[in-house]
């Protein structure tokens, strides 16, 4: 028995049960449209944070351009569904493919840079994407792209989030993911052990962009309306904050971070004047008292003690 060990079956059931219960509450109106809006935002943020974590947390490549991949995905899905009347799944697939293609194009030249140089280069890329968006008439320019059909439902959202988390955690637990983690740890040693560092950096970047594109598609088909400004520098920083807050290199941390930060800012809406002050204060305190993020590197420990291969070995 390989795939069907106890842990996998239990998680599979848990995933279905959460889906059914939440779906029931949404359909019966117990979760109103305002709360659902926030659930959509949390879901999108989880996808963005987990995919950025692959690039920044695991592979150690400091990227400040993640929102650009999201915007490429969002506009692709917007054009496909609003202008070309395609179904949603084509919108999502197109968004993911286009964003990952952009990831390859940007990754190959910039990933030769390291640390802060890479951060500045990706920041520049994000600005270029934004300015192209502002100046292209076909997608509405600065006024934005309107009348995108609302296809994002609970089912689409939930299974896109599950797929992202599943694929990225499978990836980091494979030898390819191990190579990426090794690059983040020590590039020279990774190279000496036979890891083609450029290839794996571009691979991580492309995969991250792929899922950011999906997040963009979900966003576009929920909010009817897109404008280039929503995917600026601040959006990239927001995603990075979730990743650092949750813990670099921890997928569970990114999920927890996305949920917690959204809930915190939701509660703070009662005090609009002090909202950003308190929010920043919370971030500040977390970073002072828990610099490794709320979950630290707990995924790694989990992987070591009860990871796929180990589980498989014990259950043999």
């Amino acid at each position: 028995m390989k795939l069907f060990n106890k842990k996998n079956i239990l998680s599979f059931l848990a995933v279905l049960i959460i889906y059914a219960i939440a779906g029931f509450f949404i359909n019966t109106g117990f979760i109103d449209s305002y709360i659902f809006l926030n659930i959509v935002l949390i879901g999108i943020n989880i996808i963005l944070a987990v995919s950025l974590n692959l690039i920044t947390g695991f592979t150690g490549q400091f990227s400040l351009g993640h929102a650009a991949f999201m915007s490429i995905g969002a506009y692709t899905a917007g054009i496909l569904t609003a202008k070309l009347d395609q179904p949603f799944w084509i919108g999502i697939a197109g968004a993911a493919l286009f964003a990952s293609f952009a990831g390859i194009i940007i990754g190959i030249p910039t990933l030769r840079l390291k640390g802060d140089y890479l951060a500045i280069a990706t920041l520049g890329f994000a600005e270029i994407v934004k300015i192209i968006g502002l100046n292209t008439e076909y997608i509405g320019g600065a006024t934005g792209l309107n009348d995108i059909p609302r296809y994002t439902t609970w089912t689409w959202l939930y299974f896109c989030v599950v797929a992202t988390v599943l694929f990225i955690s499978n990836f980091v637990k494979s030898y390819k993911g191990r190579a990426c983690i090794a690059i983040g740890e020590d590039e020279i040693a990774a190279e000496a052990m036979g890891v083609n560092t450029t290839y794996y950096k571009v691979l991580a970047f492309t995969l991250g962009a792929f899922f950011a594109g999906i997040a963009g598609a979900l966003y576009a088909n929920y909010f009817y309306f897109l404008k280039p400004d929503s995917f600026g520098f601040m959006k990239s920083i927001d995603i990075l904050v979730i990743v650092v807050f949750g813990g670099m290199g921890s997928i569970k941390g990114s999920i927890a971070g996305a949920i917690l930060l959204s809930v915190i800012s939701l509660f703070l809406q009662g005090i609009p004047e002090l909202r950003m002050v308190v929010y920043s204060l919370i971030l500040f305190l977390i970073m002072v008292y828990r610099p490794q993020g709320i979950m630290g590197k707990s995924d790694f420990k989990f992987f070591k003690k009860r990871g796929v291969v180990n589980v498989y070995h014990q259950s043999k």
């Binding site: 990836f171 030898y175 020590d186 000496a192 890891v195 070591k304």
Partner: peptide
């Protein structure tokens, strides 16, 4: 130059990098 935040077994497993032969789809 060990991978300091990886376990010992993961460090050694990385040595097998070139002898692994499954693709991206298999890992996903």
């Amino acid at each position: 130059r060990l991978f300091k935040n990886m376990s010992i077994i993961d460090n050694v497993l990385l040595g097998y990098h070139n002898n692994m032969s499954y693709g991206l789809l298999s890992s996903l």
